[in-house]
Amino acid sequence: MSTRETIDLYYEYANAGDWSSWCDLFTDKAVVDEQLAGRLEGQDTLREAVAGFPEMYRSFKNVPRHVVVDGDQAGVVSHLSAVTAGGEPIEAEVMNYFRLEDGRISYMANFHDTLPFRGPLGMEGR
């Protein structure tokens, strides 16, 4: 699978709530530096982290606005729109950096505006 195909599937699966297929896009030893959750290491850790998403979010959409692919690396600017289980809306601009090995994500870094996540998720002060 090409880098672009993997990146497109990353957003397709996330927006469909298909977290199992989303996790399959990562290598077994993938590292994700997530701005709110910190460093997540390994595909199993990712599976645990997203297992609660269906209960945390009534809706979750992360729509790519600009994608740049250079070999086995990609950068994506996107817009996240979500509604928490408590009905709180979240709107955030996002930047993701991806590094792939053999068509699977081996490293990802996530950067976004944290303000929309403070109230609904109890992350004041972060």
Rank of each mutant, 00 (worst) to 15 (best):
F26N: 14
T27Y: 05
K29S: 11
A30H: 09
A30N: 01
A30C: 13
V31N: 04
V32L: 09
V32A: 10
E34I: 01
E34D: 15
L36F: 01
L36D: 13
E41I: 12
E41C: 06
G42R: 03
Q43V: 05
T45L: 04
T45P: 04
V50E: 02
A51W: 02
G52Y: 00
F53W: 15
F53L: 04
P54D: 04
E55H: 05
Y57M: 02
R58Y: 08
F60D: 10
F60P: 14
F60L: 14
K61L: 10
N62A: 08
V63G: 02
V63S: 04
V63H: 00
V63A: 12
V63C: 06
P64I: 00
R65L: 09
V67A: 03
V67S: 02
V67G: 03
D72H: 02
Q73P: 05
Q73E: 12
A74Q: 08
A74G: 05
A74S: 05
A74L: 12
A74D: 06
G75N: 05
V76L: 10
S78T: 10
L80W: 08
S81R: 08
A82L: 09
V83E: 15
T84G: 10
A85L: 07
A85N: 08
G86T: 15
G87A: 01
E88H: 15
E88M: 12
P89E: 15
P89V: 11
P89Y: 10
V94M: 07
V94C: 12
N96H: 13
Y97S: 00
